[in-house]
């Protein structure tokens, strides 16, 4: 049983077909890395999985239950809201709420959801911030934190809603090279704790080390997929070889 299964996802913006039928699945505790050239559709795929865009066609299932079907688009906002909680999302630009402290950023959504008692929410938030190495920064505002620290708060914030699957869109791409490490370490640690994750990344070394599966997206389709060793050690398609060659 796959925790997440995407079948035949398609998505167009106007006349431009960005996703042309994408299928993949991941098992609980796995880390899936998505790589590929710019404009290939990686962000669009992740946004469709998180319902920030609605896929035109295809289905998305969580634990074998279809929660989104592109062929019947009349799904209500409330239904989307309920279903999307299976997924968490960390953005390239962090998107922290500037008027709240790190701790308040983490507790806001759980509090508004009223799914847990307040003291439990607070305890868990402090615990999450400690796990991303920011116990001493929890009362700071985002403008007082470095990019790497902000991104770690964003990870804690996403985890606070206890998603089944955590998605990242190039989590280190807007960071200075010398601080990408602190964010990658946190993600790696989550992987070791068997957090199910989907990570779009340009950090090939990181993908190779942390991912259980890698998919290579080019031109809106999965051009190749496999284990990190297959993808990086023995690329089959010309396109993947070119891509890997171009970034080394």
């Amino acid at each position: 049983m796959s925790i997440l299964e995407v079948k035949g996802f398609t998505k167009s913006f106007g006349d431009v077909k960005v996703l042309k039928g994408v299928d993949f699945s991941i098992e609980e505790g796995e880390v899936l890395a998505i790589i590929g050239p710019s404009g290939g559709g990686k962000t669009t795929l992740l946004r469709c999985i998180n319902f920030l865009e609605r896929a035109d066609g295809g289905t998305l299932s969580i634990n074998d239950k279809v929660i989104y079907d592109g062929s019947c688009p009349s799904i209500s906002d409330a239904e989307i809201r309920e279903n999307r909680l299976h997924l968490g999302m960390v953005f390239q630009q962090f998107n922290l709420f500037p008027q709240y402290t790190a701790l308040e950023n983490v507790t806001l959504a759980p509090k508004l959801s009223r799914k847990w008692p307040e003291d439990e929410i607070l305890e868990r938030a402090k615990d999450l911030l400690a796990r991303v190495g920011l116990a001493d920064k929890m009362n700071n505002y985002p403008c007082e934190l470095s990019g790497g620290q902000q991104q770690r708060v964003a990870i804690a914030r996403a985890l606070a809603m206890q998603p089944d699957i955590l998605c990242f869109d190039e989590p280190t791409s807007s960071l200075d090279p010398e601080i990408t490490g602190e964010v990658l370490r946190v993600i790696k640690r989550l992987a070791e704790e068997n957090t199910t994750m989907v990570v779009v990344t340009h950090e090939m070394g990181f993908a190779r080390e942390v991912a259980d599966k890698v998919i290579f997206i080019d031109g809106g389709v999965i051009a190749e997929c496999g284990t990190p060793d297959e993808i990086f050690g023995n690329p089959k398609s010309e396109r993947l070889r070119d891509f890997l060659g171009s970034i080394r």
Binding site: N50, L52, G88, Q93, F97, A158, M161
Partner: peptide, 25 residues
């Protein structure tokens, strides 16, 4: 737009996003 999207993926309603995230900004 990222402020709205961050609220959305955390499961906030449109109303909550407006009043708890956007309004003070």
């Amino acid at each position: 737009k990222g402020q709205y999207e961050a609220g959305q993926v955390l499961g906030l309603t449109k109303r909550q996003i407006f009043f708890n995230v956007v309004l003070l900004q």
